[in-house]
Structures are given as C-alpha cells and as structure tokens.
Amino acid sequence: MGLLSKKDAALIKDPLADNNPITIQVLGICSALAITAQLKASIVMTISVVFVLGLGNVVISLIRNIIPSKIRIIVQLTVVAALVIIVDQVLKAFSYQLSKELGAFIGLIITNCIIMGRFEAFALGNGPWKSFLDGIGNALGYGVLLIIVGFFRELLGSGTLLGYKVLGDPIGKTGLYAIGYENNGFMLLAPMALIVVGIIIWVQRSRNKALIEDH
C-alpha cells in the first residue's frame, strides 16, 4: 500500500480479521443474520454499509468539534438517516425487486450498531481522512462476514450462488443431485444464521488464541 502509511493501512486491515466488528466487537449483528439467506442480498447490504459508514464517519468527523455532546446521538442519527434514505431511494430506483426483498432491513442500517459504534469510538476523536479509512475498513470487515455467511447459507440451503445453480439441478437430478445430494432447507431458516456465525467465531478463535474470552 504505497498510498497509505502503515498506520492508515492498519485502520483498514485490522477490522477485516483480528478486530472484526461482528465477531470481536459484537456490533451490527442484526442485519448480519437477517439478510444472509442469499449471497446477493449480503453483497448489496455490504455495499450500502460501506457507503453509509464511510461517508457518515467523514461527516461526523468534520462536525465533531461543533456538536454539543449532550445531543450528539440525535445528530448522529440524523446524519445516518439522511445517508440511508439516499441508499434506499437509489435501490428503489435501480433495483426495485431487491429493495422489496431487503424491505425494512435497509432502514435498519440506521440502527446498525456498527455505525453508531464507530461514530462514538472513532469519528468523534479523529480527523476526516482517518475516519474515512476506519469507516471503510469496518464496513468491509462487516461485509466479509456477511458474505461468508451468505455464501454458505445459499450454497447449502438452496444449492445456488447468486442465483446460479452451481450444484446442478435438483429437479432434473443433474450434477451433485444425481448421486443423491439434497439441499438442506434448514440453512435458509433464521436459526441457522446464528449457528453459522457461532461456528465462524469458533474457527476464528481457535486459530487466534489471543481472542479467547474468559467467560
């Protein structure tokens, strides 16, 4: 990364793994679970959050010295709500079908704890450029997890990826289905999202012992 200093690069890289917003900071779980039944929805959600968190962090960082700290939550919510309205309107204009599928969850980006968490923890104390990098990094860290969960849930649940039948045709019995493979419809249901995230946390913490909690 020639463009960025080492410190700046760390701002982007850390949240992708060892300081992941979902598995370590425990922020933004709600949407991570609710919309991951399909890979496509996960990707759209990731892009939306990158946009909202990147820009939101910059805006908050720019006005951080003039917000009275008593009403900062309302100010932050207003900034996020404005950005989310933009995302929502763009989605409605260009991909109405998807916007219907995501439904209330686009609106729920407003209360996605990642956003408020990063505003509070980072943007209020750092300059705009650093805040921007931090926002992008955390949103990507969130996105990576979303995409992993979405990948497994769609692959195992409906045998497709982004709508393409990668495992063959379950009705025509081609590909894997010819030798008796069955889709696990349970993966598409809500509880499995929790269990998949649980397993990801398990794998991550087994690989990096420093992350283990003592209860």
């Binding site: 425990v26 999202a193 946390i201 913490r205 087994s206 003592d214």
Partner: peptide, 23 residues
Amino acid sequence: VPPALRGLGITFIITGLMAIGFM
C-alpha cells in the same frame, strides 16, 4: 465450554437453538 467458544460463540449457538425452539 470449549475455550474458543466461550462467551460470544456459545451464546450465538444457544440463541440459534432457542430460535429453533421458538419456531
């Protein structure tokens, strides 16, 4: 609880099981 699952991990899995129950 297995060390790597302690805290957050096991909570997720329990919640998943409870969600199955609520279904």
